[in-house]
C-alpha cells in the first residue's frame, strides 16, 4: 500500500459521494447518465465476487462493500426514487457497442480461463469504457452542471493516481498487472479532454459548456 494507491481510492470514494450528494440535495439526477452508473454497478459486482472467496485485508473488504453500496444506491436514485428527473432522452449511448467487445475481449485476453478470472477481466475492461455514456451525454447536451464536473474530475484523478501507483509498485515490488495497466491507461486517456475543459473553464468559475 502506497500513498498513490490510498489517495486514488479516496478520490474514487469522493467521486461517488459527490455524485450521491448532488442527487440527494437537488433531488434530481438531471445530466447524469444512468447507463454509465449501471455499467459501474456491473463493474463492481463482477470484480468483487472475490469478497466471497478471498480475504485480502479489512481495508480491502470494507472499501469493496462501500463501493458496491454507493454504486447501487446511485442506480436506485436514478431509476427508482428520482426517475422522473432522469433525462433518458439524452442518455442514448448504445450499451451493446461496449458490452459486446468487452465480453469478447475478456474471454480472449485473461490470466486464467476460469469464471471468476474472466469476470474480473471483464470488469477491468468494462471500467475503462464505462464513463463513455456520461461523456457522450455531455457532448450531446453541450453542458454539464459544475457539481457533475467535480464528480468527473475526482473519477479521472483516481485513474491518474492509480497509474502512479502502478509505476511505484513496478519499481518497489516488481508488481506488474498488464491487463489493469493497459486498461488503466486507456481509461485515463478518455479523461484528458475533460481535464482540459475542467482546468480552463470550471476552475475559473465558468460553467462547462461546449461550443
Amino acid at each position: 500500500m502506497n500513498v498513490f494507491r490510498i489517495l486514488g481510492d479516496v478520490s474514487h470514494l469522493l467521486a461517488m459521494i459527490i455524485l450521491l450528494l448532488k442527487i440527494w440535495r437537488s433531488k434530481s439526477c438531471a445530466g447524469i447518465s444512468g447507463k454509465s452508473q449501471i455499467l459501474f454497478a456491473l463493474v463492481f459486482t463482477t470484480r468483487y465476487l472475490d469478497l466471497l472467496t478471498n480475504f485480502i485485508s479489512i481495508y480491502n473488504t470494507v472499501m469493496k462493500i462501500i463501493f458496491l453500496a454507493c454504486s447501487y444506491t446511485t442506480v436506485y436514485m436514478i431509476y427508482g426514487k428520482y426517475r422522473n428527473t432522469f433525462d433518458s432522452e439524452n442518455d442514448s449511448f448504445r450499451l451493446e457497442f461496449l458490452l459486446v467487445p468487452v465480453t469478447g475481449l475478456s474471454f480472449l485476453e485473461n490470466y486464467n480461463f476460469t469464471p471468476l478470472e474472466i469476470l474480473w477481466t471483464f470488469s477491468i475492461y468494462l471500467e475503462s469504457v464505462a464513463i463513455l455514456p456520461q461523456l457522450f451525454m455531455i457532448s450531446k447536451t453541450g453542458e454539464a452542471e459544475t457539481i457533475t464536473t467535480h464528480y468527473l474530475f475526482f473519477l479521472g484523478l483516481y485513474r491518474t493516481l492509480y497509474l502512479a501507483n502502478w509505476i511505484w509498485r513496478y519499481h518497489t515490488e516488481s508488481f506488474y498487472d498488464q491487463i489493469a495497466v493497459v486498461s488503466g491507461v486507456v481509461q485515463t486517456i478518455f479523461y484528458c479532454d475533460f481535464f482540459y475543459l475542467y482546468v480552463t473553464k470550471v476552475l475559473k468559475g465558468k460553467k462547462l459548456s461546449l461550443p
Partner: peptide, 10 residues
Amino acid sequence: IIAKTPHDEL
C-alpha cells in the same frame, strides 16, 4: 514480473 492473484487492488 507478473500480477499476483488474488487481485489486491480495488
